[in-house]
């Protein structure tokens, strides 16, 4: 078994959106839609400011509420790596999964089905990194198997402080932000 996850270094990330551009071309994401995006979170008052920049997407949660709530069995956990996916031809477009996601990571594709980040499973199964990770000019993103203690993500998460998004929502997100 594998448990795929990402560790994203907010120290290196400059929020350039290359991950977004790469996702759009790799996956043919229709114009006007984003499977991944950048969040700039700044705190404080000028000039004493702190800012965290994050490349965000579906968190491929360990306890994904979007899967449980699906009445059609379209939203599912892939057999490999715990990746959360959608069978487009099983989806009725009821949008329950969208309501269920605390990260608002999903959207309705212009063709009617629920869509979102796939962790580029087609690339991963071919031995490559997801497009967003592979393209990042700042090398701020790391993808790999958390169950393998020697993987890059495991090692980097063991050595650095990190946080996940909205842990209180209880979904056990699998994207970790290094700081």
């Amino acid at each position: 078994m594998a448990r795929y996850a990402m560790a994203i270094d907010t120290v290196r990330c400059v929020g350039c959106m290359d991950c977004v551009a790469a996702c759009k071309t790799e996956n043919g994401v229709p114009e006007g839609y984003d499977r991944d995006w950048i969040t700039y979170e700044s705190t404080g008052q000028f000039p004493t400011l702190h800012m965290e920049i994050r490349s965000e997407r579906c968190n491929h949660c360990d306890d994904p509420p979007c899967v449980g709530c699906c009445p059609c069995g379209a939203s599912h956990i892939h057999e490999r790596g715990g990746v959360v996916l959608v069978h487009h031809d099983k989806c009725s477009g009821c949008k329950a999964c969208i309501a269920a996601c605390p990260y608002d990571a999903r959207f309705i594709h212009p063709d009617g089905y629920a869509d979102k980040c796939t962790f580029c499973i087609h690339r991963v199964e071919a031995g490559k990194d997801p497009a967003c990770v592979a393209v990042c000019p700042t090398h701020c993103m790391h993808f790999g198997d958390l169950e393998d203690p020697h993987s890059e993500v495991s090692r980097i998460l063991a050595s650095r402080n990190s946080h996940a998004l909205v842990p209180a929502a209880g979904t056990k997100p699998q994207i970790f932000y290094l700081r």
Partner: peptide
């Protein structure tokens, strides 16, 4: 590794 403009 290209920048976002190159990728786009």
């Amino acid at each position: 590794r290209l920048c976002p403009r190159g990728t786009g």
